[in-house]
Design a protein around this nucleic acid. Structure first.
Length: 785
DNA sequence: GATATAACTTAGCAAACGCGAA
DNA sequence: TTCGCGTTTGCTAAGTTATATC
């Protein structure tokens, strides 16, 4: 795996090991993709668990924190000087003069926020609570190759794709009305497509039950919602009926022989305290339970559940022994695995029954699958990365916490006997069926429909249509932000540079986050000076910017990329006279950016660039990598490589599977065996040929043919295995699923499959085919994103 | 305009599932 | 039939964006 080249000065060499993890350069890792990756970018991939420490990274953070501490003191002495006012470099002075000219305001958008962060940081440091970056994952980042031929004009907007549904302002949402409306639609479609499936889709409410049975027996008869009209004016549905959520099973106290020990002595806990103790006991093998914050938060919340006697006695978590409880749960889990077939079958049937009862709702005459109909059970909060709230108790949700959303005229879900819902509302401007407020962040959680549902599918389709519209005006937008790099106003320059990063590197928007409430992660607009390094020259390239920060889910983004001179100079300017923990874009936030984007194109937001660039990259890559001469497995490898290119662009990483090495070894063994088989078969063919030459009879000629076919078959099998090995190796720490599910217009994949005669099942599994049913149905082989 | 809140999408991990080899 | 492994599915945290409120 080791490459013969090395990366940058303070970078890690390809093939070396950092803190026990392999460092792999993607250029070595998979060539076809690297072909389109910028030759100048340097991609380093450090292998490891996303939330594990990486000392090198940590060290750097430490340095920054210490540095920050010093600077804080200095700053409090001298006040916060405006970086625009002092510079010893001539050209920058000139730039600054220009800036001042038009942008004389002294108030920076983010000052308040920044100050707060500083205060808290000082507090944290004073309190000797050192925050460390947990994630040691370096991103396998690549720079999107910028398409030059973006002048394709999508002929239609999503709005024009379908006629808008008449909004009859029906505030009552009576099924009767729906029927009338549907009858109209049925007539319309009869004209359109000969009325296929009209019977089922046109059923009135009472007949849906019938459709239920039908759906089970004849799953091929699916509702083509994409052939119908859409609602307008924010109405999401007109009729909604469901059975409410399924609550977590109530707590079952431990058997008396399973004991908790405090300070070496057995201690019987009250049911409330015991339940919370089991949450911790179940996690004993997890790294979480060794983390100081986790333990602190857990213990604090656990004590809240204790009786006063327990509280008085249990004062030190270190003296708590949960081992017996932990053993008990392990035994339970073993027992579950060892259940008889019949027992397992019974459980399966019960699950199916619950699914049938609670897992579906009726929305506008159709029985639709609900995504998450079970309420999240109580437990300990497991935040990602260095989360300040990890270990806190996630409390049990009760009926009185639940808000039900359904039609007025539907059969309302009944709360469990003796309980009440918090509220039953009838809001058809939202898509959720059930909601509750969670106690860790105070955010609202929802029960919504499955991705295969009309309501989700329509939105998904619309998302890709917006991205396709961007395709037709991306050149104009790019030209504009290039112009804006020269603006006299700082805020406009910042906006333009940020947009360039979002477009070129597929960065997320980067909202501001409340300090101390979540892990310290950033996106584009919230980048800080400490996340960027500038190299006027590096590795023979000019104007190189190095990004190193923790993004969503505390996944590390690392990328060293050459940028245009003007961008470089601007970033230099933005960084001037700032502290490491100052915002890079102090005059920009996501709201400002998105407002600007909205002006450039209707419906345009920062995240559309991610969708657009992901999809366009897939399409380009498929064109480039697919070889018409190759067989199906080879073509699928090409598809996966194109998919991989997108995953790299979007920085979708995964921890290498625990069994990765072993599984590669197994595959290699298979390959070796197959090679042996092949040489045997070839030998046999040779001798059969020789034999046939001597004998010259039909039988021996037949034998030759048989042997020839055997060789061919084995060759094919070997090729398949080798392709599989390549694919798996290249995929070691790249997650394809996220981009496939969320960023790639499915019509591109469907068109590709149709063009090359690849069964769609090879690209999408059952769930994915359900989600993308609309695309599978509507895209033909000539579809262009 | 700033801030809070609501609604919805995107994200990675791990348990469950299911299939082929032994 | 069992076992081991790859794949699928469920789970829920963590983002983005729109909207409401002050």
């Amino acid at each position: 795996m080791s490459g013969d080249h090395s990366h940058n000065e303070d970078q890690i060499d390809c093939g070396s090991r950092v803190n026990g993890r392999d460092v792999i350069c993607l250029t070595c890792m998979f060539h076809p993709v690297s072909r389109f990756m910028s030759q100048t970018s340097r991609l380093i991939l450090a292998v490891g668990d996303s939330y594990k420490h990486k000392d090198k990274y940590k060290e750097k953070e430490h340095k920054h924190k210490d540095h920050k501490k010093d600077k804080e003191r200095e700053k409090s002495k001298h006040g916060n000087s405006d970086y625009r006012d002092s510079s010893d470099k001539k050209h920058r002075d000139k730039e600054k003069e220009k800036m001042k000219h038009k942008d004389g305001s002294t108030v920076k958008y983010k000052d308040k926020h920044k100050e707060k962060r500083k205060e808290e940081k000082i507090k944290a440091l004073d309190g000797k609570v050192k925050k460390e970056k947990e994630n040691g994952f370096a991103s396998p980042q690549h720079v999107k190759s910028e398409p030059e031929d973006n002048f394709y004009h999508s002929p239609k907007h999503e709005k024009s794709l379908k006629r808008e549904r008449d909004d009859d302002n029906d505030s009552e949402f009576k099924p009767k009305k729906i029927k009338t409306e549907n009858d109209k639609k049925a007539k319309k479609r009869k004209q359109d497509d000969g009325g296929i499936k009209s019977k089922k889709t046109k059923n009135k409410k009472g007949e849906v039950i019938d459709g239920k049975k039908k759906a089970k027996k004849e799953p091929e008869e699916k509702w083509k919602w994409w052939e119908e009209e859409r609602y307008t004016d924010g109405v999401k549905w007109k009729f909604l009926e469901h059975k409410g959520p399924v609550f977590a099973p109530s707590y079952e106290p431990l058997p008396s022989n399973v004991r908790f020990y405090y300070d070496g002595k057995p201690m019987k806990l009250s049911p409330e305290a015991e339940e919370v103790a089991t949450f911790f006991a179940k996690m004993l093998d997890h790294e979480y339970t060794t983390k100081e914050i986790f333990r602190k938060n857990f213990f604090k919340d656990w004590r809240k559940e204790m009786t006063s006697e327990e509280k008085a006695k249990i004062t030190d978590l270190k003296k708590c022994n949960f081992c017996e409880m932990n053993e008990y749960f392990k035994t339970q889990s073993e027992a579950r695995k060892a259940m008889t077939k019949e027992e397992k079958q019974k459980i399966k049937e019960e699950n199916e029954r619950v699914l049938q009862e609670y897992g579906y709702c009726i929305m506008d005459n159709h029985r639709e699958r609900i995504a998450n109909f079970r309420i999240e059970p109580p437990g300990l909060f497991r935040g990602r990365g260095d989360h300040p709230k990890m270990g806190m108790l996630k409390r049990r949700i009760r009926p009185q916490d639940i808000i039900i959303n359904c039609s007025k005229d539907s059969k309302h879900p009944a709360p469990p006997p003796g309980t009440k819902w918090k509220e039953v509302r009838h809001d058809n401007k939202v898509t959720w069926l059930v909601s509750w407020t969670e106690n860790i962040q105070g955010s609202i959680k929802y029960i919504m429909l499955n991705p295969s549902s009309r309501i989700k599918g329509e939105k998904d389709w619309q998302k890709y249509e917006t991205a396709r519209r961007l395709k037709s005006c991306v050149d104009r937008i790019r030209n504009q932000y290039r112009e804006d790099w020269k603006s006299k106003e700082m805020r406009i320059r910042q906006r333009a540079v940020a947009l360039y990063f979002i477009d070129k590197l597929a960065l997320r928007a980067g909202n501001e986050k409340e300090e101390g409430e979540t892990a310290d992660t950033v996106g584009c607009c919230s980048l800080r000076v400490e996340h960027i390094k500038l190299y006027p020259e590096s590795d023979g390239q000019e104007y190189v910017v190095e990004f190193d920060f923790l993004g969503k889910d505390s996944i590390r983004y690392y990328n060293k990329v050459p940028v245009e001179k003007r961008v470089f100079k601007n970033v230099q300017l933005f960084m001037e006279n700032k502290e490491p923990d100052d915002d890079l874009f102090d005059r920009l936030n996501t709201s400002i950016l998105n407002k600007h984007l909205q002006e450039l194109m209707d419906g345009l937001t920062a995240k559309v660039f991610r969708t657009y660039n992901a999809s366009i990259t897939l399409q380009q890559q498929l064109k480039e990598l697919t070889n018409s001469e190759e067989n199906i497995p080879a073509k699928i490898l090409s598809y996966n490589r194109a998919n991989r290119a997108v995953a790299i662009l979007c920085n979708h990483q995964r921890a290498p599977p625990k069994t990765f090495e072993k599984s590669m070894q197994n595959l290699q063994t298979k390959i070796d065996a197959k090679r042996g088989q092949l040489s045997d078969a070839r030998r046999e063919l040779k001798s059969a040929k020789a034999d046939a030459k001597v004998r010259k009879d039909v039988k021996s000629r037949k034998t030759v043919e048989t042997k020839r076919k055997a060789v061919q078959r084995i060759e094919e099998q070997l090729m398949k295995l080798e392709v599989q090995a390549t694919d798996r190796e290249e995929n070691k720490q790249i997650a394809l699923g996220t981009s496939k599910l969320n960023y790639l217009d499915p019509r591109i994949s469907v068109a590709w499959c149709k063009k090359w005669g690849i069964p769609i099942e090879k690209i999408y599994n059952k769930t994915q085919r359900e989600k993308f049913a609309w695309a599978i149905d509507m895209a033909d082989k000539d579809f262009e994103f």
